[in-house]
Simulated scan of single mutants.
Amino acid sequence: MILPIVAYGDPVLRKVCKDVPEDFPKLKELVSNMYETMYNANGVGLAAPQVGLPIRVFVIDTSPFADDDDLSPEDQKALKGFKQTFINAHVEEESGTEWAFNEGCLSIPEIREDIKRKDTLTITFVDTDFKERTETYDGLLARVIQHEYDHIEGILFTDKLSPLKKRMLKGKLTNISKGKIDVEYRMRFPKLKKAR
C-alpha cells in the first residue's frame, strides 16, 4: 500500500525515533509499504518518520543510482542491487574525508543542495528477521544511509546548510509545508487538513 509522505514542517520529522520491539505489530507489512511508497515516488531511501511514524526504521534500494555514468565503477558496483532494511540502526563511526554531493529528499520536494558528509560509515542494525549486523559502507552508498539515518535522529539535509542558504530557502520550505507545490506522489502537508 502506498502511504502519503510527510512534508517538511511536520513535527514527526524532528523527533529522535524510538527503537522498535521485535513484536512490533505488522512490522513486515510496514516495511513492504515503505518500499512500495519509495518506489512510487522514485526515491532510493525512505525513513519511517517520512510516513508519520517516529520509529527507527528505514529502507534503501540504490539500484536506480547504479546506471549513472558520472559515478565511478566502484560506486556503480556497490549501488547495483543494494537493497536493505535498517531497523534500530545506530551509527558506530563516521570516518574518512568529507565530500560534497547534491542531495534531495522526498519530504522536501524540488530542493536539492550540496551537502558534505564523511565518506565511510560503520553502522549496527537489525534486519527484518531481527538478526543483528554491523556493516561498514563507503562512497555514495554510505551517503544514502547517512541521509536516511539522519531522519531517524530528527535531522533533515537542510539542517546542514549555511545560515545564508537556509534564509534563501525559507520561502520555498514554507510553501512546501503549506502544500503549495506540485508533486507526483501522495504527500501529507502539515498546514493542510488532508493528504493529497
Results as ranks from 00 to 15, higher is better:
residue 1 M to I: 12
residue 3 L to W: 05
residue 4 P to Y: 03
residue 6 V to N: 01
residue 10 D to L: 11
residue 11 P to V: 07
residue 14 R to E: 00
residue 16 V to I: 15
residue 16 V to A: 09
residue 17 C to L: 04
residue 17 C to F: 01
residue 20 V to I: 06
residue 21 P to A: 14
residue 22 E to H: 10
residue 24 F to H: 09
residue 26 K to E: 08
residue 27 L to D: 09
residue 29 E to P: 02
residue 33 N to R: 13
residue 36 E to I: 11
residue 39 Y to N: 03
residue 45 G to C: 10
residue 47 A to G: 05
residue 52 G to A: 13
residue 54 P to C: 04
residue 54 P to K: 03
residue 57 V to F: 02
residue 58 F to H: 01
residue 60 I to M: 07
residue 61 D to E: 06
residue 61 D to W: 05
residue 63 S to N: 12
residue 64 P to Q: 12
residue 65 F to M: 15
residue 66 A to S: 15
residue 68 D to P: 10
residue 72 S to H: 11
residue 74 E to C: 10
residue 75 D to A: 14
residue 76 Q to W: 11
residue 77 K to A: 15
residue 77 K to L: 13
residue 78 A to M: 04
residue 81 G to D: 07
residue 83 K to I: 04
residue 84 Q to P: 10
residue 86 F to T: 07
residue 87 I to T: 07
residue 87 I to W: 04
residue 88 N to V: 05
residue 89 A to L: 12
residue 93 E to C: 10
residue 94 E to V: 13
residue 94 E to I: 06
residue 97 T to A: 09
residue 98 E to G: 09
residue 102 N to C: 06
residue 108 I to L: 07
residue 111 I to K: 02
residue 112 R to E: 08
residue 115 I to R: 00
residue 118 K to T: 14
residue 119 D to Y: 10
residue 120 T to E: 12
residue 120 T to F: 03
residue 120 T to P: 09
residue 121 L to Y: 01
residue 123 I to N: 03
residue 123 I to Q: 07
residue 124 T to K: 12
residue 129 D to F: 05
residue 129 D to A: 13
residue 131 K to Q: 15
residue 136 T to F: 05
residue 139 G to T: 14
residue 139 G to C: 14
residue 140 L to N: 10
residue 147 H to V: 03
residue 149 Y to D: 03
residue 150 D to A: 07
residue 154 G to V: 02
residue 158 T to F: 01
residue 159 D to G: 00
residue 159 D to L: 00
residue 159 D to M: 00
residue 160 K to L: 05
residue 160 K to W: 00
residue 163 P to C: 15
residue 163 P to F: 11
residue 165 K to C: 01
residue 165 K to P: 01
residue 168 M to Y: 12
residue 169 L to M: 12
residue 169 L to V: 06
residue 169 L to I: 05
residue 169 L to Y: 00
residue 171 G to T: 14
residue 172 K to E: 06
residue 172 K to N: 04
residue 173 L to D: 03
residue 173 L to W: 00
residue 174 T to P: 07
residue 175 N to C: 07
residue 177 S to P: 00
residue 181 I to E: 02
residue 183 V to Y: 04
residue 184 E to W: 15
residue 184 E to N: 07
residue 185 Y to S: 03
residue 185 Y to I: 04
residue 194 K to W: 14
residue 194 K to Q: 13
residue 196 R to D: 11
residue 196 R to E: 13
